[in-house]
């Protein structure tokens, strides 16, 4: 027979877990192929979870990520000591920004995928064709995931023209759904990067210039995320 005391214990624990458990927000990292989405997903996990854990592989060959990958339960805590990039801005330490999120790394969105482009990277024809097929499936999967996320981190390569129709279409879809969106202007470590061009192209959205690879300004992005996706 279950004692009343034990029942009470179970009940209170259940109640506590309900009260304390904060739901994760699902944040999709979207953008064109090669923008640095996986590099950023890895950096988020390296910073807040484990320096040795990778979400996925990043390479210079486009459509490296061809399946959506979800890393659940990442606690962004800007008050804690960061493993990497100790927060340089003293204001950040005081703002008690915390956010629990699922990081969703998506395949790069594209309107065309030509297997011949992969052969230019030294892939054999058969492998290039297989990669192209998987890449088309990856794009479809990324689009389907838009229905299941709570916010978008749209990554663009600041050395490239930002005013592409895929960027415009992602933003248009998020606006239509009333979903929060942050644009990260990536690769600002490169000398020919012009993050200002991205700001000019999309003046209605918050644009944070970063280097996912080198870590430049990444704390500012985390702050913006904690604010926008809460």
């Amino acid at each position: 027979m279950i004692t009343r005391k034990r029942l009470k214990g179970v009940f209170s624990r259940l109640l506590m877990s309900l009260l304390l458990k904060k739901q994760s927000v699902k944040i999709g990292i979207y953008g064109p192929p090669n923008a640095g989405k996986t590099t950023l997903a890895n950096r988020i996990v390296h910073t807040f979870v484990d320096e040795d854990e990778d979400v996925g592989t990043s390479t210079e060959v486009p459509h490296e990520t061809r399946r959506v990958i979800r890393r659940e339960g990442v606690n962004i805590d800007l008050t804690a000591n960061l493993l990497q990039n100790p927060v340089s801005n003293p204001k950040t330490k005081r703002s008690k920004a915390k956010l629990k999120l699922d990081v969703i790394d998506t395949p790069g969105l594209a309107t065309k995928i030509d297997f011949r482009d992969f052969m230019a990277y030294g892939l054999e024809e058969e492998e290039a064709k297989r990669r192209a097929k998987e890449a088309t499936e990856g794009v479809i999967e990324a689009i389907k995931w838009l229905d299941d996320i709570d916010g978008v981190l749209l990554l663009m390569d600041s050395t490239e023209d930002p005013y592409t129709q895929t960027n415009v279409v992602i933003i248009g879809n998020m606006e239509a759904r009333g979903m929060p969106i942050i644009i990260a202007a990536n690769k600002v470590d490169l000398p020919d990067s012009t993050p200002q061009r991205i700001k000019t192209a999309f003046p209605q959205h918050r644009v944070v210039p970063i280097s996912a690879l080198k870590g430049d300004n990444i704390d500012q992005l985390f702050e913006a995320m904690a604010k926008a996706f809460r």
Binding site: K112, V139, N173
Partner: peptide
């Protein structure tokens, strides 16, 4: 609309082939 364009990208991806890259 943006939604229609996204749907169009999805449809295009289903039909990409060696002769039709997109």
């Amino acid at each position: 609309t943006s939604e229609e364009q996204m749907k169009l990208i999805e449809l295009t991806m289903i039909e990409v082939s060696e002769d039709f890259p997109g």
